[in-house]
């Protein structure tokens, strides 16, 4: 399959990490001087994780300006740690991500339990700079580190009954305080059609900004499907199951009229309660137009040829 390659990022367009870290330190120092201890927790998520060695840059990336590390790791949805977007950074710090196993089962030849480190070593890691569009109307540009889900699927050899892939997040209310309230029907479940899962853009991420994935962003293993709304990118994955029928995802259970199985970014199909035509890129003042399939239409449009996207939203 031909996958169009995004333009190369010019070296001069990339801000050195040390530079913006210094800028942040400078601003942080000023803020501390000014605000004193009035704002506890503001700098949570600033601590950089360990660097991941041997990450190759990937051609499937965007050259758009990256959302600062602080915002990527300090503002996101991960209801297992609370429903406010600052909650994950505040509550996921002590979440234990080792030991961790991922069970791969269902309609698959090599059904077994994998240790996370073993799983990560199965494929070479790449850096992929993807747009991320949240269903709530905001967006980011995130340099993920991960490997294509495709390579894992090929390795475990799904059988002919495998039509969909179902992902499940860890269920552990002791460690995930958000699970103590039934905001959603825990554990979180997401799913993809097998061809979507096999698409080269579909990524299993283990890091961002060249570093080990922070807990609040879905460590140790999360899904990234850049042409779908962010909630499809399930975090803290413990199970990948190959199934014949379309999985019932956590959000479909919660509000079937608002969240569909596909949840492709689509400016023409509104959320029942708000428009999806525009989005606010975090860090920008003006809203920008939301693009069909989040700007990945050339790469993924063929997957949905002939489908009524209003019906299969």
């Amino acid at each position: 399959m031909m996958i169009k390659k995004a333009d190369e990022i010019k070296g001069r367009e990339i801000t050195e990490k040390s530079t913006y870290l210094n800028r942040r330190q400078f601003i942080a120092a000023g803020a501390v001087l000014g605000a004193g201890l009035l704002l506890p927790g503001v700098f949570v998520g600033e601590v950089a994780g360990p660097k991941i060695p041997g990450v190759r840059p990937s051609p499937f990336g965007t050259k758009e300006e990256r959302t600062p590390y602080k915002d990527v790791t300090g503002y996101n949805n991960y209801y297992e740690f609370g429903t406010d977007k600052e909650d994950p950074a505040a509550n996921a710090g002590r979440f234990r991500i080792r030991p961790w196993t991922v069970r791969i089962d269902g309609a698959v030849k090599k059904s077994r339990e994998y240790d996370i480190d073993q799983l990560i070593k199965m494929s070479p890691l790449e850096e992929r700079v993807y747009r991320m569009r949240c269903v709530e109307g905001w967006s980011m540009v995130i340099p993920w580190v991960g490997f294509p889900l495709q390579s894992l699927i090929k390795a475990v050899e799904p059988s002919s009954q495998a039509k969909y892939v179902e992902f499940t997040t860890l269920l552990n209310p002791d460690q995930m305080p958000g699970q103590r309230r039934r905001v959603l029907d825990w554990p979180y479940v997401e799913g993809l059609r097998l061809d979507e899962a096999m698409h080269p853009l579909t990524l299993l991420a283990v890091g961002l900004y060249g570093e080990v994935l922070p807990n609040q962003n879905g460590a140790p293993l999360r899904l990234v499907v850049p042409w779908k709304y962010g909630f499809k990118g399930i975090k803290g994955i413990v199970r990948i199951r190959f199934v014949e029928h379309q999985p019932v995802t956590a959000w479909i259970k919660a509000a079937p009229n608002e969240y569909g199985f596909y949840s492709n970014v689509n400016p023409d199909v509104d959320h029942p309660r708000w428009s999806q035509r525009k989005e606010r890129r975090i860090g920008e003042f003006f809203k920008r137009e939301t693009l069909m399939f989040n700007g990945y239409a050339d790469q993924v449009g063929h997957l949905y040829a002939g489908m009524d996207l209003r019906k299969y939203f």
């Binding site: 803020a31 905001w138 606010r280």
Partner: peptide, 11 residues
């Protein structure tokens, strides 16, 4: 003034 409104200050 202090940037305490987080990543999405408008919202």
């Amino acid at each position: 003034g202090f940037g305490g409104l987080g990543a999405n200050p408008i919202e």
